[in-house]
Nucleic acid binder design. Sequence first.
DNA 1: ACAAAAGTGTTCCGACTACACCCATGT
DNA 2: ACATGGGTGTAGTCGGAACACTTTTGT
Lengths: 303, 303
Amino acid sequence: MDGSRSEEQKHEQISEQQFLATYNVGDYERPSVTVDMLVFTIRNETQSNYRKLAEPALQLLMIRRGGHPFLGQWALPGGFVSMDESLEEAARRELYTETGLDNIYLEQLYTWGDVRRDPRTRVISCSYMALVDSSELELEAGDDASEADWFRMEQRLVEEKRHIHEHGRITERQIQLILMNGTEELSAVIETKESIEGRVRSNSIRVVEAQGIAFDHAKIILYALERLHSKVEYTDIAFNLMPDTFTLTALQKVYEIIGGKKLLAAAFRRKIADWVVETGEYTGSAGHRPSRLYRLNPDRPAT
Amino acid sequence: MDGSRSEEQKHEQISEQQFLATYNVGDYERPSVTVDMLVFTIRNETQSNYRKLAEPALQLLMIRRGGHPFLGQWALPGGFVSMDESLEEAARRELYTETGLDNIYLEQLYTWGDVRRDPRTRVISCSYMALVDSSELELEAGDDASEADWFRMEQRLVEEKRHIHEHGRITERQIQLILMNGTEELSAVIETKESIEGRVRSNSIRVVEAQGIAFDHAKIILYALERLHSKVEYTDIAFNLMPDTFTLTALQKVYEIIGGKKLLAAAFRRKIADWVVETGEYTGSAGHRPSRLYRLNPDRPAT
DNA sequence: ACAAAAGTGTTCCGACTACACCCATGT
DNA sequence: ACATGGGTGTAGTCGGAACACTTTTGT
């Protein structure tokens, strides 16, 4: 019923136009609404010798907080949604001011609405995931004195408890999430709880402790990683992380990083064959056979 | 950065505790936040002769609006999120007051944040999908004079435009959504636009016209149907619509209705074999062979 | 007897797995 | 020569699709 407050009842005799003309918003307390951005990219880490390929890694953009609360800690980029922009417009604006990027893949992830997730006041945050190709990307200096950097991520399963009872089961996991840039190492422990009780399945997720990661952002990151992980298997989402032209090995590496498992080259190539087209160009000057460069097939089959 | 307003900058010298103690929420204008519920169930329609089984149908709970705007039209159940409850708590509360049901499957769907989606004021709505077993279900009278009813749904593809250009393509579809209860027939035309431009894929959805369906709820319904449609193929979500014990044919019908296609019994039974267990009981007194009753397997394999 | 649904066995096909093998390059 | 990655062919396996067929009931 999308918002009917009790004073409406008095107005049944008047027209809708009259109603709207005299409508009074009222002074109910309202939560603040923000968007939080998860900007992922693939970047090359190191190149040990002239033969080895550079090892790519998935990285996440974070901002060091320049004010209270969580002063000095790292948080997801984001900000308040203003009254005259949609959620997605707010997300794109935020993204643009942070990265200078425009017109990139953006997907709404989840809306976080716990009562005390922000110590200042009630804040509801709608999270968006953006996937960018790092090749052209240079971080903007940022609005104020805020500092932005890319972090690579690691997950470790710390503990798993499984409790099976008559009508279902409960699985509790503690997962450690570690973020690393060149100099700092942040970490958090997140507890996920999956319960099946009769037909009813429900999930919850909670930050147990966080070191250097502001707010409840650690669990948002974990949630995004899981989404990415599952979506890479049944969509072409991974292509959003690739530059214009790429080798199939590079593409496969991206699938492996996001999917979290090694793939066999032969099978992989067959699977994505229809999604790409050859450009006719080749990479060269590596200590091994040159590699065909491909481009995304503009009329690839529906995923 | 989850909500940093500029006055923070002045406080860098004070402690976080001091900051929070003196924090002033400010009088920025804030959007209102609501939850909208999509309550789906499977109900039996008709039973033409003693031999035929009753034909089940997917139905959606809607509420007739008792006040402006959209007076007399039908809307999704929902309401404002108050300051001391989480989004999910608000959704469960709404669900309980509407149906009397507690502890059922609930899933956050999407958060709708267009600026003018509510003619009164800026309203951001977080939509939740609930799946209930209709067998035990009786609608509550409802809080005020509001009227609640179940509607079955039909979709018709009205128009499809496909435009292929150099670096991608655009697909525009106009879909008519029809809702029917015993007496009324509501309808709406929704336009979905999927564009692929280089690597960037984006989607938008818009209500072109609505008859009897309030706000932008027609597109929320369409979105939920699509989610249900795709999730039935790779999760066990359909079981949430089933009663405690059920026949495999009934289960298959649910899969067929939600998935939108006929299935072969042999293949279906093999596929879900591990998710169910026999109860040892049988249905009877139908004009055909009795049917085993099954129950959901409490330790079914992970989906 | 027969209509309707319950339930099972068998064959076919396509997609993915695993592995073996050859190709091309820079040092 | 050789390490490294690029790239392809083939045999095996698994699950789903299609179809045929048997079983069981109430009227």
